[in-house]
Design a protein around this nucleic acid. Structure first.
Lengths: 171, 171
DNA sequence: GACGGTAACGGAGAGTTCTCCGCTACTCGG
DNA sequence: CCGAGTAGCGGAGAACTCTCCGTTACCGTC
């Protein structure tokens, strides 16, 4: 499988890229229609720099999204290290839920072909993360084994749509 | 089946819409990146009018495309009325080929989710048109029956990509 | 045919996108 | 450490998008 991550060669470029991503994340959380010039200014870089890293608005939005998902997935291990499996599971899902809620703010832009592609690329890692959590719970006896990670995600998606009152009970 | 065409109530609105569509067709054929202001000006309407009819650039492009396909399909009957079936077949495919060549100029924009939807809606009529032509040829004995319209389109698509030298022979 | 209500128009202008190119500063070889 | 070469930066400004609202002219009614 080809490596999709091609880090910029120069350190400053790398730094800028990440900083823009962070700023854009916050800006979009506040207002999904924040202008790119404003984001560049807030990030303390010129418009040109922003556009070099992210040629279109959508590129930026998708990069933010991708980055967020990666961070989220990476947190699974930390969670498992710091808490008993079942707590880790609940805590992680709270984070995921919080993110999905936020994403709705900036998510109107996730309806293009390119976005679909990124979402597809992004789904597998999330399923993997859920599987790790489920396995840990199963090994620990706090949850019965044999649950499918994809099914759990599907179910969570459904519950979020229904409303959060009943989520606790189902758990 | 629901009627998708909802004509504007007022005559001037209707006229403007169609005129914009015609102008846009030409403008995009020349340069797929023509600005909407320029198109509005060329069409002799204000920018507001253009945006009322086609809220986004993509809406306009897709409307132009849809309109072209409709015109193309509508020509099948004329062709069959004016020429023997096999000539009609060839002539129509030349028109289709010419259009596909042109479309390549403005077609970079046909890669979004909405576009996919329109293209899907658009494909069936074209297949229908091909079927009418094939049936006419078969009835007339100039071509053996039993060819599937969708297959023919697929084949034509393939031939265009390969190059036009060999197209005649295959026919 | 002319009148009132309203759908639709026009186009100025505020705000945004995105490019271009002179300048800065990172990296690497010596 | 230093200096040459180049990747990457900044931001002014040209071009574009899109909205807003006063004006126009269509349509139905009498």
């Amino acid at each position: 499988m080809a490596e999709t991550r091609n880090e910029p060669v120069r350190a400053d470029a790398q730094r800028n890229r990440e900083h823009i991503l962070r700023v854009a994340h916050d800006a979009f959380a506040e207002d999904g229609a924040t202008s790119l010039n404003v984001i560049a200014k807030r990030a303390g870089v010129g418009a040109g720099t922003l556009y070099r890293h992210f040629p279109t608005r959508e590129d930026l939005i998708l990069a933010v999204y991708q980055n967020d998902v990666r961070r989220l997935v990476a947190q699974v291990d930390d969670m498992l290290a710091a808490h008993p499996p079942q707590d880790a599971f609940r805590l992680w899902f709270e984070k995921l839920a919080a993110y999905v809620r936020l994403k709705h703010g900036l998510g109107e832009a996730l309806h293009t072909v390119a976005a679909q592609h990124v979402v597809d690329n992004t789904y597998a890692p999330v399923v993997g993360a859920v599987r790790v959590l489920l396995d840990a719970c199963a090994a620990d006896g706090s949850m019965r084994p044999g649950l499918d990670a994809a099914d759990v995600l599907l179910l969570m998606g459904f519950l979020w749509r229904v409303g959060s009152d009943e989520a606790g009970r189902a758990q």
